[in-house]
Design a protein around this nucleic acid. Structure first.
Lengths: 348, 348
DNA sequence: GCCCTCTATGTAAACGATTACATATTATGG
DNA sequence: CCATAATATGTAATCGTTTACATAGAGGGC
């Protein structure tokens, strides 16, 4: 592998000069500049990023810690992250970690010296506990509960979104509204459940434990939960799945059971993944700007990076938007999602 | 940030001893070993991976070059890669690159010194041309045409899979079978189209240009292409979409046009993404072991890494399997996918 | 008591870049 | 024509590790 020394030797100059030419730093005569470019090109010299980052202490890489890589939601988040990261000249080092504290800590250790900052997406409720290792590099907590004021955080307006969706169902005459929850240890899931309960209370509808099922955020889970709901003495007339994967599972179960949607049963999801509008019937959902979520997380992180992690901490929450399609009795109109990302600061 | 020197000073030993303890290399007395562990733990010392990899010339990271991060297919591939990579102690550096030669070259340069090998997934037909930069690090070409013998490659049995699916449609009595193609520059797309044409020829069905539409591998593209097909004088009775995203778009268009599936129109996809079986009706598809594909790519790459890229090159192709569900008139039976990955060596 | 072999530790040279500082050359101004 | 400044280049330290080699002491066999 050809190094800067090889280039210097071949061009009969010092490594310093080569470095100066390649980085456009310091004065170099036009002749040597041309010469070195020619030699470097001919020798196919490629700088060793690892070596460079050791001395500059910038890796131009940001780490991403994910709980699991599953489904279109994550695919879109990563896409958003990669887009902005790349635009700002950064790379993405992705690591799926076990959601527990140990897993996160191990992963964080492994990232030392490889990244300039980390986006941690660990919906697990006690995610922040890994912060007893006060990290010197910037961290953005994504979709996680954040208690302390050590790191920046970015979350989804889960509670409000869920509440709006359930209220909308109420407005359409439903009184027996079931929910398919995610894991109780999952922050997003917990917040969406909270929104559901608030909406019911506001509508004066008594909660019913039979109507709260867990689906683990997977299609299969939503499918199974729906079959359970259908087996109830007194069926619900609407199902609010707390993410789209489960809603898709629900639709599948309803079709197999020959329950017509939305005539006999309304179904709503959460996230509004790109697929949602292609479902049968098109799925009502709480729109989350998924890509922008990833993009914004990277932006916040890079702000921390440029300020050497010595900046006032932010706590942001991105807005959701109700998208009513046919699965809850809406009319088939597609409005394009808003161009700008609506977000708000969350008081500590 | 605390370095190995700090630990050495605090423990009153040399850096060499600290290094030996932390890596379990060379003899160290039990006393010093305990001492150093204690000190390192107390000071929260974390080795700087960048510095280490500079001297060991192992980064324990593998690069992944993707054409685009879109949909469940990529999400699953990455998942498969991450699983095996992590199991073998490697990280994933992911980069979405413009599919052209320049883009790949730039991305490859940027990875110098950051990774021990690269999985390049560039379905673009002239992907391998970037190899005029004879890379010294191992490369695995994933889902790309590979002409030379410079690198390992792993592909999908596209042609056979497509051929089997179309033959199956023929066997069910269809003679007007449309195809929704991907980009002609896409290797997978081209091969699937080839399989379709072979199957038609075998069945003695004359090709019909009207029945070949392009959908760009997206839901929207499949949706639009289907509307075009429905507008034809003489409609097809079956649509073979060359990936599931387009098939989902097709189902959506058919439903809106009130064409019943499979009674009036059969629909088949390719890839068999996890969602396929939850469609309405459940989507017949050519099953591709997506996660295993990613996993196997990493395995092949790591084989190259351990052999310092001085190993006989492999050219593998993973088998597909026909999965007939209701969208082409199948009966609703779900068989679990095979546990082991079927693959074969491809002669050069 | 001597030599050899272990074991435990330290010293210093890498790895491949960047960059502060020193030095040599040329240009400018009086 | 000399002092000074500007330009061009080289030297060597540095980043945080690993590791080959050197050294020192302990133990064992003769």
């Amino acid at each position: 592998m050809v190094t800067i020394k090889d280039v210097a030797r071949e061009a009969r100059v010092s490594v310093a000069t080569v470095s100066r030419v390649l980085n456009d730093s310091g004065p170099v005569s036009e002749d040597t500049r041309r010469l070195i470019h020619e030699v470097a090109g001919r020798m196919r010299y490629v700088p060793h990023s690892g070596a460079r980052s050791l001395i500059t202490s910038k890796t131009e890489t940001i780490g991403v810690l994910l709980p699991d890589l599953y489904g279109e939601f994550f695919s879109e988040v990563i896409r958003g992250m990669d887009e902005t990261a790349q635009r700002k000249g950064y790379h993405l080092l992705i690591s799926r970690s076990y959601a527990d504290k140990d897993g996160i800590e191990t992963a964080m250790r492994a990232m030392r010296g490889r990244v300039d900052g980390v986006v941690v997406m660990s919906p697990d409720l006690d995610a922040e506990s890994f912060l007893n290792v006060p990290s010197t590099i910037p961290v953005v907590l994504l979709c996680s509960v954040s208690r302390g004021n050590e790191v920046d955080s970015l979350t989804i307006q889960n509670c409000r979104g869920a509440r709006e969706m359930v209220s909308d169902l109420v407005g359409r005459g439903h009184t027996r509204i079931a929910i398919i929850k995610g894991s109780p240890r999952n922050y997003d899931a917990a917040e969406r459940l909270r929104g559901y309960r608030i909406a019911l209370r506001e509508a004066g509808i008594a909660p019913d434990a039979d109507l709260e099922r867990e689906g683990g955020f997977t299609e299969m889970g939503g499918y199974a939960a729906t079959l359970e709901l259908l087996a109830l003495e007194e069926r619900p007339t609407a199902i609010f799945a707390t993410n789209d994967s489960m809603a898709i599972g629900a639709l599948s179960a309803l079709r197999e059971s020959e329950v017509r949607v939305p005539d006999e049963m309304s179904v709503a999801g959460f996230d509004d993944i790109p697929l949602a509008r292609f479902m049968d019937p098109p799925l009502s959902s709480v729109h989350v700007p998924i890509r922008e979520l990833g993009a914004r997380a990277v932006e916040i992180l890079l702000h921390g990076v440029t300020h050497k992690n010595d900046h006032p901490r932010r706590r942001e929450r991105v807005s959701t938007e109700l998208v009513i399609r046919r699965s809850t009795g809406g009319v088939p109109v597609e409005r394009p999602p808003p161009k700008t990302l609506n977000r708000e600061l969350v008081p500590a």
